[in-house]
């Protein structure tokens, strides 16, 4: 079974849990899932096993505490220490797919923006190769960093009873705002230099659509071809 199928079934099966067991299990699940360096396939398999165990135990009158112990964080750490890391090949595929997807959206949005602004005024569609590369690399870097920061935030708060969800949201939102600001400031200060070329909206839209198609096909093939046996 693929990881994506396991996740979907996990969502459905969690409905069978009592409120108390659901809370215990969900914390465990979030804590394990936010460790991005671990094999997704293996993580989802053991999460599914634990969920099925809990559902079966629940029928016999047991609680999550009876089954997994009174120290959920310690237990989750034990599971994590035994899970294999994601294979490098899969990580490269995963980040490659996200990068192509982001650039695809970037180009599609650019063409829409040119089209809309073009309704009222003349738009300069010249692109300078080097500044564009720098800006795109900066955006990708900030997005990757943002994912890491937000996952770490969620991971840390998984077993914290006093977590203030609003505070977490504000933190994540603040991070997004700062990122956005950095990109705007950078694009303002990076001067147009070096070789340039004409990049009309039609070409931008075409290439963007092709990239989105490629990323969609890549995603399908990643899900279809789990690395684990």
């Amino acid at each position: 079974m693929r990881a994506s199928e396991l996740i979907e079934q996990n969502n459905q099966k969690r409905e069978f849990l009592t409120e108390e067991n659901e809370k215990y299990y969900s914390n465990l699940m979030i804590y394990i899932r936010t460790r991005l360096s671990l094999s997704e396939q293996q993580s989802e398999e053991v999460l599914m096993e634990m969920l099925e165990h809990l559902i079966e135990g629940q029928h016999d009158g047991k609680t999550a505490r009876d089954i997994f112990g009174n120290d959920p964080k310690g237990y989750a750490d034990e599971i994590i220490s035994q899970l294999p890391p994601e294979e490098k090949r899969d990580l490269v595929k995963f980040f490659g797919q996200i990068t192509i997807n982001l650039i695809g959206w970037f180009l599609v949005m650019r063409s829409i923006a040119i089209l809309l602004i073009g309704l009222t005024q003349e738009v300069d569609t010249t692109e300078y190769i080097l500044p564009t590369i720098i800006l795109v690399a900066l955006i990708l870097l900030l997005v990757a960093l943002g994912v890491k920061v937000i996952f770490t935030l969620i991971n840390r708060s998984a077993f914290d009873e006093n977590t203030n969800e609003k505070m977490q949201m504000i933190k994540a939102g603040l991070y997004g705002a700062v990122e956005f600001l950095v990109i705007i400031v950078a694009s303002y200060f990076i001067k147009d230099f070096g070789p340039s070329f004409e990049f009309p909206w039609t070409v931008s839209l075409g290439i963007g659509a092709i990239l989105l198609l490629i990323s969609w096909l890549m995603k399908k093939s990643i899900n279809y071809n789990p690395s684990a046996p």
């Binding site: 079974m1 199928e5 396991l6 079934q9 293996q42 398999e45 053991v46 599914m48 096993e49 634990m50 099925e52 165990h53 559902i55 079966e56 135990g57 047991k62 009876d66 089954i67 997994f68 112990g69 237990y75 034990e78 599971i79 220490s81 035994q82 899970l83 294999p84 046996p229």
Partner: peptide, 30 residues
Amino acid sequence: SEGTIYPVLLRLQKNKLITGKMIPSESGPN
């Protein structure tokens, strides 16, 4: 305690002493 078997099973799989196969089912448990 029942939960202790899962870290053990993961370790044994990692050391290639056992293999696990997930069998999906339409209605029942996986």
